[in-house]
Nucleic acid binder design. Structure first.
Lengths: 134, 134
DNA sequence: AAACTCTATATGACATGGTCATATAGCAGA
DNA sequence: TCTGCTATATGACCATGTCATATAGAGTTT
C-alpha cells in the first residue's frame, strides 16, 4: 500500500462531514426563474411552491430572498410592494425580458450538466458493472 | 409593470457577470475517485486524463491538488512519493476502502441530481414547448 | 390587553466548490 | 545559461448553500 507517508495528513477533527458526498445542488436559480416565468409572485409564495412541487424541498428562505434581491440587482426581475390582503406586505417579483433570456441560458446549462452526469454514470457503471450484477 | 420601486436595486456596476448562468459544476470529486478506483495516479496525470476524457476539460490544477489533499485528510486516498523516472517527484495517490464507499455514495448522489435536472427540464419544456416548436 | 401563531422579509456567520493568478522546483535540450 | 515541460502548491476571491436568528404585521386565543 502507500504509507511511507509523505509527511502530512493526520485527520484532525475538521474537514468533510456527514452527508456522504457533496451538498445536493438545488438549482434554485433556474427554478425561481421558471416559476416567475408563469406568474409574478412573492418570496414566501415561491418558497411554498418549491416545497409543493417537491423540488428543492427544504429550500432556505435566506438564500431565496437573497437570490431574488440579486436577480433584481441584475435586472432579471423587478419588484413592487403589495399591501393588499391580510398579513405583512409582500414584495412581488415579476420576471423581465432579460430574466427570460437568462432562464433559457440556464436551461442550456442544465442540459449540458445533465450530459456530464450521464457521462460520469456511464463510466461509473462500466467500471462497476460486475459488482452491480450482484 | 413593476417599478413603483420599493426603494432598493439600482444596478450599480457589480453583481452577476459574464458566463450566462451559474458556474459549470464539474463534479471533480467523483471523477477523481473513479479514476483512482482504476489505477493509482499522481495529480498531474489525473489532470491530463480528465482533459483527454473531455470531462472537466479546463480543470483547475489548484483545485485538483487541494481536493486530493483533502481526500487524504479524510482517509479517502493515501499517498506516497514516487521519485523514479525523470522530472520532479510525484505524489502518487491510491484509493482506500473508505474512498471506494465514498465513490459509490457519490454515484447515488449523482443519480439523484440527474433526476432533479430531468424534473427541471420537463417543467421547462412543458412551459416553453410552443416556442421550441418555432 | 397580553400572548401566541402564521405570514413575510431579511441579515450574519460560515462551509464548500470553483476560478484566477502566481510561486516553487526538478530536469532536459537548445 | 536560458527556455520549457513536468509537477506540486498557495493566496485571494466569488458563488452557492446552510444554519441560526431578527424583525414585524395581522389575526386568534386566553
Amino acid at each position: 500500500m502507500c504509507d511511507g507517508d509523505g509527511g502530512h495528513a493526520r485527520s484532525g477533527g475538521h474537514g468533510r462531514c456527514c452527508p456522504p458526498p457533496g451538498r445536493s445542488r438545488s438549482f434554485l436559480q433556474p427554478w425561481l426563474l421558471l416559476l416567475l416565468s408563469r406568474d409574478a409572485a412573492h418570496g414566501y409564495e415561491l418558497l411554498e411552491r418549491l416545497g409543493q412541487l417537491d423540488v428543492v424541498p427544504g429550500a432556505d428562505p435566506g438564500l431565496l430572498y437573497r437570490t431574488l434581491r440579486q436577480f433584481e440587482e441584475d435586472g432579471l426581475v423587478c419588484s413592487a410592494w403589495d399591501t393588499d390582503g391580510s398579513g405583512p406586505a409582500r414584495r412581488v417579483y415579476r420576471i423581465t425580458d432579460e430574466g427570460l433570456e437568462y432562464l433559457h441560458a440556464w436551461a442550456v446549462n442544465v442540459r449540458r450538466t445533465r450530459q456530464r452526469l450521464d457521462r460520469f454514470l456511464d463510466e461509473y457503471e462500466k467500471r462497476f458493472r460486475e459488482e452491480e450484477k450482484k
